[in-house]
């Protein structure tokens, strides 16, 4: 009888919803700055990809990385993929380059004490931009 009035099963949270909790757990927009510093420092120190950043404007890049991390952490963003694709189009990037960035992202989250479960949801979102970055 009660079965008739059974509540609708709550849908499992999407990666975006899970990641949004990471954004809040880290402390919102203010905390993203610290995360970007750690992340960007790792990227610049990574021989596999650091040469891509030799001639760029570090501050402009920092702002872009902040936009990317805000998106990956599920914060407020307006990601369309167009800029990401445009910016990386002529760089001849490979899977290895993408993985290097992803590893640095994971390292950053570990350093910030983020749980493995939350890291997984962030990585899921980060990987969703892969085709844009590799221009596929």
């Amino acid at each position: 009888m009660f079965g008739l009035f059974k509540k609708k099963e709550k849908a499992a949270p999407s990666p975006e919803e899970k990641a949004a909790s990471v954004f809040d757990k880290l402390g919102g927009a203010a905390a993203i700055d610290a995360a970007v510093d750690i992340f960007y420092r790792k990227v610049l120190a990574d021989d596999r990809i650091s040469h891509f950043f030799d001639t760029i404007d570090m501050e402009a890049q920092h702002v872009k990385q902040k936009a990317f991390l805000t998106m990956a952490f599920g914060g407020p963003n307006n990601y369309s993929g167009k800029d990401m694709r445009e910016a990386h189009k002529h760089m001849n990037l490979t899977e290895e380059h993408f993985n290097a960035v992803a590893e640095n992202l994971v390292g950053t989250l570990q350093e910030l004490g983020v749980s493995q479960e939350d890291i997984d949801s962030v990585v899921t979102i980060a990987v969703s931009v892969k085709d844009d970055v590799l221009n596929k």
């Binding site: 203010a30 700055d33 702002v63 872009k64 936009a67 914060g75 407020p76 963003n77 307006n78 990601y79």
Partner: peptide
């Protein structure tokens, strides 16, 4: 303007009179 989410900073302006709410200067 760009992201409209406070990240890209494309829409940065200057306040010449009045108070700026703190969340508009985040980052």
């Amino acid at each position: 303007y760009g992201c409209r989410g406070g990240s890209c900073q494309s829409c940065m302006m200057q306040c010449t009179d009045g108070d700026v709410p703190p969340q508009a200067q985040q980052g």
